[in-house]
Each structure stands twice: as C-alpha cells, then as structure tokens.
Design a protein around this nucleic acid. Sequence first.
DNA 1: GAATTAAATTGAACGTGTTCAAATTCGTTG
DNA 2: CAACGAATTTGAACACGTTCAATTTAATTC
Lengths: 226, 226
Amino acid sequence: MSRNPGRQRSSSKAEETRARILEASLELFNERGFDDATMREIAARAGVATGAAYYYFASKEDLVMAFYRASQTEMQTMAAARLATGTDLRARLDTIISGKFEQFAANRLLLRALFRTAIDPDSPISPFGDATADIRDAAIALFADALDGSDVRVPKDLAPHMPRLLWLYQMGLILFWIYDRSENQQKTHLLTAKSLDMVVRLIKLAKFPPMRPLRKAAVELLAAFA
Amino acid sequence: MSRNPGRQRSSSKAEETRARILEASLELFNERGFDDATMREIAARAGVATGAAYYYFASKEDLVMAFYRASQTEMQTMAAARLATGTDLRARLDTIISGKFEQFAANRLLLRALFRTAIDPDSPISPFGDATADIRDAAIALFADALDGSDVRVPKDLAPHMPRLLWLYQMGLILFWIYDRSENQQKTHLLTAKSLDMVVRLIKLAKFPPMRPLRKAAVELLAAFA
DNA sequence: GAATTAAATTGAACGTGTTCAAATTCGTTG
DNA sequence: CAACGAATTTGAACACGTTCAATTTAATTC
C-alpha cells in the first residue's frame, strides 16, 4: 500500500500526508502514551479525517511499527558508519547495543507500548513474527558485521548461529530496559557493560577443548531451531 | 470489592454469581481466545447483564488474573510433592519445568492473554513486580529445593544466585512456549530437553579452574542485581 | 480536453470495553 | 412487618479502534 507507485517521482502529496500522520502519532504517543492517544486526535492533528489514517496505516499499532522500522534503518546507517573502525569485539558489540539504547531513550513511552503489543504472538509487530522478518534480519546482519570485522575467531560450527544468538541477547537486554525504572536506565547500561564482558569472554573460551561438549550441545540445539 | 462482607457466612448468592461469571469467561476465553470473547457474551452466558461482570471484576483482563491467582497455589503444591524422590539434578529440574507446562497446557489461549498483560511493567501481575513477589519467591524456592536435594555441588560463590538464575531460565522457556505453535508445543519440550542438558552441564563445569574468571564475572553481575 | 480509471479522502456507522444513574433485591432494624 | 439502606443488577450511553460506501481529487487515455 502506497509503495512507490512508479508513475511520477514518489507521489509527493500522498507521501507527505503519510508523513504528517506518522509524525502526529509519534508526538501524541510520547505526550500521552499509546493508550491515551486516540486515532481521532492523531488524524485531527495531522489535518485529515479519521479514515485517512487507516488508508496509510493498517492499525494504531502499525503506526508504532512504522516508527520502529524507520528507526531500524536509521540505526543501520548509524552503526555501519561507527563500525568502520576498530577490531575489538567488545567495542563493536557495544557500538550496536548502546547505539540502539541511545535511539530508544527519546521514545521510551512509545517503545513500552510497542513491546506490550509485540509480545502477543498474533500481533503483526511481534519481533519473532513473519511481518517483521526484514527488520529482524537487518538487525542480525549488523551483528554478523560486528563479528566479521573483529579479531576474534569464532569456532566454525558455532559461527553461523552467533549473529542470531547475539540478537537474542540484545532482545533480552531490551526487555530489561523496558522494566528498568532507574534514572536514565543506568541499571540497563550497567547490565549491558557487565554482561557484555561475559559474552565476549564466553565467545573467546568457546574454542578451547574443555568447552567442546558444551559447544556441541549448543550448536545442536541452535541447529534444531533454525 | 466483594471480599467477604463479614455479615453472614460468605454471602453465598453473590459469591455464586461471581463464580458463574468467572466460569463463563474461562469457557469463552478457551473457546474463542481472549480478544474474540466479548464481555456481553460472557455476561449473557452467566445469565446476567453486562454491567454485572464489572461489578465483580474490574476489567476483562481482571477475569484472567482471577484465574491466575486461583491456579497459582495449585501449581506450587503439585510440584513440591513430586520433588520428594531422586537426586539427579536434571530429573529434578525437569520435574518442576515440565510440571509447569503440563498445568499450562489446558489453558493455553488464556495464558497467552495473561502474558500479554503481565509483560506490562505497570500491570499488577507483572512477574517481576512487587505485587507478585510472594509467588515469585515460592517458585524460586522450588528451584532451591531441587538443587539442595541433588547430588550436584554448586560452587559456593554461585550457589546463592543459582535458584534465581534457574527461575529466569524457566521464564525464558515459558516465553518460548507462548510463541510455540507446534502441535502440543513439542518444540518447547524439545527445547526444554536440550537446553536442560546444557544447563546441567554448565553447572557441573562451573567449578573447574578454566571457568573461574567467567564464573567470577557472572557472580559479580548477579550480585549487582540482587 | 473530455472521458475514464485510479488514488486519496471523508465521515457516518459498527462492535467493542467500560461507566453509571437508576431500578431492584435483600438483610437488618425499629 | 414496615421501612430503611446497602448490596446487587440492569441496560442505555460513552469513547474508542476500525470499516466502508460514498465522494472528491489526481492521473491517464483517447
């Protein structure tokens, strides 16, 4: 819907209406929270009728997803640039994860709403669902980059699963962030720092013989759920 | 509201109406799922007007919470009984975890709805919130029992954190179960079996020298978030 | 440039969860 | 037992997210 119609340039008029609705919704979500912002009010602020919002967005939740998708691409370019230098794995992972939290910080109310609906498997914005596959793949690819450009050698059997595993780890941190009531979510940042140490240490340990049976079990498990 | 009014016995008439509404809601939630069961239909099946449901329950979600509260105590006592025999750690953990899934199985649709509200940090039934501390502590104590009665020796520094860690692991499995669309949730059971192998292996490995720095880091992290 | 097709926009209407003033039931009191 | 008041029950009404037939606007075709 409204994907570039291919006629003229990029159908500027409609594109602008869509942008106005999205912008109005983000404002209201962050002002009042997801539940207390009404579609009627969003449409009114964007200067269109109620139904227009549904012409451009499938649902109220879809507005949040549009924001999420937009911020993911922004993240993409941001991280790609920052990832250009340095080979230290911990620093590279921190770039991605802390970068994401920086982005999240400004839209906490909105993202809490996102996660609440996202947790429902039937929701189109479930982070594990089909509809968000593109976003998820892009995020996972970022971790693959971080690994590839680093000086750490991941065992061959584990390597193909590692990006997905790191993405899952990040999701866990985000879940913690949702619950984190500490000022500026410093608890999350502390957890990120400390757990990142462990994660990197674990990756480096993975290649040594005593870890072999554990690693094999892990790989077998990961393969079964690919 | 409607807590024992203290006059006569337990105000049998009202109590029965309340029970009828709760029963009707559980039926409909499991028949159609949370979203497709309407309050009007629930009230109709219970033989009362729509508003009556709101006299006894604060909201539609509160109906799910009422079920959760009722079934929670049953869960604990059941698992405790089964834990009486055997010293194999893996078997003991499996008793707790698989036991929980057995009880979950009958009310899958309903529990999915529950989780949706529970994930909201502001919800009174958030599994990480203050209001559910007693339930959570009981569940964690169950894992402490499983460890204590087993033949596996957990390193002293790690031991006090282990029950909470296992509870967290169980929460992860439950999250997976929520999403698991496979028949009879066999994927969850496969994941439980395989990951349980890894968990037990990791616990047994934890005491060996090469793991010491990693273990220390883990303990430090756990201590910071106690 | 008129006719035709597609895109964009409208706002009333539907079914929902929830609220609430009014009506009813019921135990208690005088 | 009459009367009072609290507990219970009712169903219309409200605001919401969402849908959709109808209308307007823009683009394309001949």
